[in-house]
Design a protein around this nucleic acid. Structure first.
Lengths: 242, 242
DNA sequence: CGTAAATTTGAATGGATTCAAACGTGGTGG
DNA sequence: CCACCACGTTTGAATCCATTCAAATTTACG
C-alpha cells in the first residue's frame, strides 16, 4: 500500500517554504503550543519545526519508541493506542485539532502509546530541543504545556466516562456526537468499525450492528463511498441519554 | 456518622506543630511536589501548607467546586469521581501515595472531579498561591508539575486499558494487583464492592461474585473484619492474563 | 442488642460476544 | 476492461457473560 507511507513533508527550515508564513499566521495559532510566545521569539525556534501531512493509517510513532518530537495536530484525527501484556490493544484517546501527541517526552524518553492517523492529518512536528531551548526564557510556555496536558487528561476521562460506560448504542451515540465537526451541523469525521470498537471497548461486530441500526432508524446517514457521515444531532442526544 | 466529617487538621503555620518537622524530613519528600526546592526556600511556603488527615469516605472536594488548593497524598487511597449528565457516576482513577489531586486548578478555577478518601488518608493541602509564588523563581517546579501530570495520565490510561477492558474476573485481578502494597507481599488496600464496580465498570453484584469466587479458589484471603486482604500474586497474575 | 448498611447468593433476563458465512468494494493483474 | 482476490462490513444463530431484581445473610455501629 503506497498511500500508507506517503508523507508529504515540507521543511520549515527552508526559507522558501510556504508553510512557514502559514505557521506565523497560523489559523490555530492561538490554540497551539506557542500561543504565548511573541512572533520575533518564535522565529528562533520556528526553523526547527516541520510541517508534516500524514495519510490515513500512517504511524506518527510507535509505543516504547525513543523519540525527540511532539506533534501538534492542525487538522485530522489521531488515535493513541496502548498495548497490554497479553497482546490485546485499546485506543485510549482521540486527538483532534489543537491537541498535542507525545507530551510524555517532557518527562521521559519514550512514547507511551502508538500514535496513528485516522484521517488525512496535518501536524507540526516540534523537537523536544526547541521546547527545552525556550523553556528557560519562557515561564508562559510552562503554562501552555499544562493546558495541553489538561486537555489530554480531559480526553482520557472522556474515554472512561463516555466511551467505556453504558450500553453499546449509547457509547456509539456519544462517540458520533464527539466526532461531529463544529459548525457544519451533523457532519462527522468517520472511522472504521474496528477502531470504533477499540475506543468503546466493544467488538467490531457490535459496532457494525449498532451503526446499521442507526442508519435504519434515520439517526445517521452514511454516503456510499463511506467517507462522510451525516448525523441528526437531536436524535443522537436522545440515544446518548437513555 | 461522625467519623465521616472528623478531620484531624493540624496547622503547619503553628511553629510547635509536630508535622512541620515531619514535612521537612518527609519520608516521601523526594516524591512530592517540591522535590527540587531547597530546604531554606521551602520554609517560606511551608507556612501555608496544611497537613490533613481524612477518615474513610471523607470528601476532599466536590466536582465543579471552586477551589484554591491541591492535595499531595502522603498515605491512603483517594478516588476521583466524575458525574455524567444522566446522573450516573464513575471512578476515573485512584490516587496513591505521591499522587496529586486537583492539578487542574493550575489551568482553571474549579475541580473537575469529586475527590473522596477510601482509606484513612493523609494529605498535604497546598494552596494555589503557594505554587504561584514559587513558580516565578523555580523553573524546576514546572518540571515537577509535569511529572505529577504525567502520573495522573498514566493512572487514567490504566483505568482504560486495565480496568475497563476484558471480562470481570480479569479486571478484578488487575485491580487487586494494582492495590497490592509494595514490599508487603500480597497485602492489599481494600475497598467496598460498590467502589470496585465503579472503577471497573461492572455492577456491585458482579464484583461481589468474583471476589467470593476468588476466595473460594484461594486466590485471596479476606480477614473477617474485612479491613485487610491477602493476595496470592502468582495466581492473580495467572487470572489477569487469560 | 437492634437496626441500617453492605455483602452474598439465586434465578431469570438481556445484551454482547463468538464463530461463521455472505456481501460489497477497491485494487491488482491478466 | 473485466475477472479475481483481499479486506472491511454486514448479518445470522448459538452461546456466554453480566445485569437485573429479589431475598437472605452478614457486618457495622449506636
Amino acid at each position: 500500500m503506497q498511500k500508507k507511507v506517503q508523507r508529504n513533508k515540507s521543511q520549515c527550515t527552508d526559507v522558501t517554504w510556504a508553510g512557514r508564513a502559514d505557521c506565523a499566521q497560523c489559523a490555530i495559532r492561538s490554540r497551539v503550543l506557542f500561543a504565548d510566545v511573541s512572533n520575533e521569539e518564535l522565529e528562533h525556534v520556528l526553523l526547527t519545526i516541520d510541517d508534516i501531512a500524514y495519510a490515513p493509517h500512517s504511524v506518527l510513532y510507535q509505543a516504547g519508541e525513543k523519540g525527540d518530537s511532539m506533534f501538534t495536530i492542525r487538522r485530522g484525527l489521531v488515535k493513541l493506542v496502548q498495548y497490554l501484556p497479553n497482546g490485546s490493544q485499546r485506543i485510549v484517546r482521540l486527538l483532534k485539532t489543537g491537541d498535542v501527541a507525545g507530551l510524555e517526552l517532557a518527562v521521559g524518553r519514550t512514547y507511551k502509546h502508538a500514535a496513528i492517523a485516522l484521517n488525512e492529518t496535518h501536524v507540526c512536528r516540534i523537537p523536544k530541543t526547541a521546547i527545552e531551548h525556550m523553556g528557560v526564557d519562557h515561564p508562559h510556555l510552562c503554562h501552555q504545556f499544562m493546558v495541553r496536558w489538561q486537555r489530554n487528561i480531559d480526553e482520557a476521562d472522556r474515554t472512561i466516562t463516555e466511551f467505556s460506560t453504558g450500553p453499546a448504542d449509547v457509547r456509539i451515540a456519544r462517540l458520533l456526537h464527539h466526532l461531529a465537526l463544529p459548525g457544519e451541523d451533523g457532519h462527522c469525521q468517520v472511522m472504521g468499525r474496528e477502531d470504533m470498537g477499540s475506543i468503546l471497548g466493544i467488538t467490531t461486530e457490535t459496532a457494525s450492528r449498532v451503526m446499521a441500526d442507526f442508519k435504519r432508524r434515520g439517526i445517521i446517514l452514511e454516503s456510499s463511498n463511506q467517507h462522510a457521515c451525516l448525523c441528526d444531532i437531536t436524535l443522537l442526544h436522545q440515544v446518548a441519554n437513555s
